[in-house]
């Protein structure tokens, strides 16, 4: 933690990410209004003391919607990347430790997924499964999981030849114990870096799909749908667009900086500034 605060961009990233997490956790306490509460008489108002970021076309308070939208973005990131990490780790360990043929087959499938155009496939899945936050989460799991599996597999292939793993095997430790007790703890560092970088991608996909109506469905607040509300009335007033875009900017930059800072700290030689 000290190293993160001392890192040039790590401190800034920690503040951004910490702030977003606090906003998401305490959203009901800090949001001044109900994010779905309609007040048609107060529609499309500019910033004021009553509504610091103004109101949208239905008179809903934009600040409250953005605060609750933080929950949506971080919930999608947590659930999708949590599932991705678990599944990716499992498949990666199977590929690294399993039979060679299974390894080749899994790598072919993962490479194929990596070669698919993410947003186009997201549109196709959105059309088939129906637009919802669940669809966004499924898309993210499918497209991020191969990277985790590849990372775990490559690390497992290296680690299984290391002396302490060979010693554990020689002492009769079962393969599952070696995997989960000796190999997995060594993978946490690279996994955390990848997760931080991927949060940026999840937020982009979630807000992008919600922006075009295929992600979080109204009236649930999402940064993308709030941005779409603002975009529809861009000629009437710019405040809504600016306000709705800012949290996406802060979140994507914050998590990207955090990922890079953690990477630099864990492995200074592979850092972006090397």
């Amino acid at each position: 933690m000290h190293a993160l605060v001392a890192h040039p961009s790590g401190a800034f990233a920690s503040v951004c990410v910490g702030f977003l997490i606090l906003v998401a956790v305490f959203a009901p306490l800090i949001a001044p209004y109900d994010p779905t509460g309609i007040d048609i008489l107060a529609r499309l108002q500019g910033p004021s003391l009553a509504h610091p970021l103004g109101t949208d076309q239905l008179g809903r308070d934009v600040l409250s919607r953005i605060i609750f939208g933080t929950r949506t973005a971080l919930l999608a990131s947590t659930v999708a990347l949590g599932a991705s990490v678990v599944l990716g780790t499992l498949f990666g360990l199977i590929a690294g430790y399993g039979p060679r043929l299974l390894d080749k087959l899994l790598m072919l499938v993962f490479d194929s997924i990596k070669s698919l155009p993410l947003l186009i496939m997201a549109l196709a899945l959105g059309a088939v499964l129906g637009p919802s936050l669940t669809t966004v989460i499924i898309v993210v799991i499918i497209f991020t999981m191969p990277a985790y599996a590849r990372l775990v597999r490559s690390q497992a292939l290296v680690l299984k030849q290391s002396e302490y793993v060979l010693a554990a095997r020689a002492m009769g430790a079962p393969i599952t114990r070696v995997m989960f007790r000796h190999i997995l703890p060594n993978l946490f560092g690279p996994l955390i870096v990848l997760v931080c970088m991927d949060v940026t991608m999840v937020i982009t996909v979630e807000s992008g799909l919600s922006f075009i109506g295929l992600g979080t469905q109204p009236p649930s607040p999402s940064w993308g749908s709030i941005l779409n509300d603002g975009f529809s009335f861009i000629r009437q007033g710019s405040f809504l667009v600016i306000a709705a875009g800012l949290p996406i900017v802060v979140a994507t930059i914050g998590f990207n900086f955090l990922g890079e800072a953690i990477r630099d700290i864990l492995d200074p030689k592979s850092g972006s500034r090397s």
Partner: peptide
């Protein structure tokens, strides 16, 4: 980090 659609808007 910036999503291209936000830059576009």
């Amino acid at each position: 980090a910036l999503p291209s659609f936000v830059v576009a808007i």
